[in-house]
Design a protein around this nucleic acid. Structure first.
Lengths: 204, 204
DNA sequence: GTCTATATCATGATAGAC
DNA sequence: GTCTATCATGATATAGAC
């Protein structure tokens, strides 16, 4: 069946995503969402009972986009270094396509962390799996010893933070030169992989 | 002169900081600030003409706390590796004392980046100075070659992000165990310094 | 300087016609 | 399903007494 992609509901979801993502839950206005969708406020409440519910639809949709692919890599049977490289590639690839995600997710999780609980159980996300894999690689002498939490934090930080802090980066480092900024982001995956490997891989 | 530290103005500033920092500009309510300061709303407008002005007072106060110390280190005549270590120490030290800063600053800069411009010129902040120092150390063969922007981004990311994403870290990595979380933060400076040195220092 | 009371306005939400 | 008109609430901000 040919999905009618510009049904009213889809237009609302698209508009809501844009507004929520740039303004956040508190800053977003139902009027603005309605305008951007080309309809009126009443229809928003007809499709989604409240602003809260509309927001939840957008938020979980965005999270759904980010988690599963990473999980697949972690569950594969590649070597630890390859896994790390694949995770970095997947992360940066996602962020290049949706650079707004980090700022949005962090803002909303700081506002109301309770939503995180539901998502973690929903995805059966258990970081123990990650930490154990890192620990074993350390004990095999493949990578240097450190608390797995620190290693994970280092990698995720280098991937995510430059996107979350985009305005600062853009202005302070690149004086708002968009070409230089995009070049920088496109180089991130390569740079981070090299940086991490230099830092942790034990040469035979 | 003995400064009267609990003058009404100081009580307002203290209360406003708490509320703005946890709720953000959009989420903060003047009523809540008044309650926390033990006064009424009208007095807020008497001392600071509007919510906007009160916010600006808090925001610039917080930024003032962060920038100068880092600048001093960068202008010193220590070696590049020592400078990097000192910057990491200073950053983590500041963040341990004021862990709310990153989330707050990032949230508000994403909301309205224009304020950043004034601050950058006010502090005469020129990142070129940092990048040149790194570049020269690379050419002397002290550290590996990479774009200075990437190296700076890596270091800042590892310092700041774990604080900005505190709720995620706390729940996903440490299942809300506050002892483990605090231990993690207190180890960050040491871990990051070692990680960066492994990644970039060229052994003679 | 500090208070109470009120003006003014914007927002999320609903009622009801078509 | 979609619209116009309206409500109810809660916010910033101000007036004016003390």
């Amino acid at each position: 069946m040919e999905t009618k992609k510009d049904s009213t509901e889809d237009k609302i979801l698209e508009a809501a995503k844009n507004v929520f993502v740039t303004k956040g839950m508190e800053g977003a206005r139902m009027q603005e969402i309605a305008d951007e969708a080309g309809i009126n406020k009443a229809l928003l409440h007809y499709y989604f009972r409240s602003k809260e519910r509309l927001f939840e639809a957008i938020f979980t949709g965005i999270i759904n986009m980010a988690f599963p692919k990473i999980m697949d890599i972690l569950r594969s049977d590649a070597g630890i270094v390859t896994k790390i490289e694949l995770v970095i590639d997947a992360y940066i690839d996602l962020l290049l396509k949706h650079p707004f995600i980090p700022g949005f997710v962090m803002k909303e999780l700081n506002r109301d962390p309770s939503g995180l609980f539901k998502l973690v159980v929903k995805f059966g996300l258990n970081p123990r799996v990650v930490f154990d894999q890192l620990q074993e690689a350390m004990e095999r002498g493949e990578i240097i010893r450190m608390k797995p939490q620190h290693l994970a934090a280092n990698i995720i930080s280098m991937c995510v933070f430059p996107f979350a802090a985009r305005p600062i980066l853009s202005f302070v480092m690149f004086r708002d030169d968009p070409v230089a900024l995009e070049a920088f982001y496109s180089e991130r995956a390569t740079v981070i992989k090299q940086f991490v490997i230099n830092a942790i891989v034990i040469k035979k």
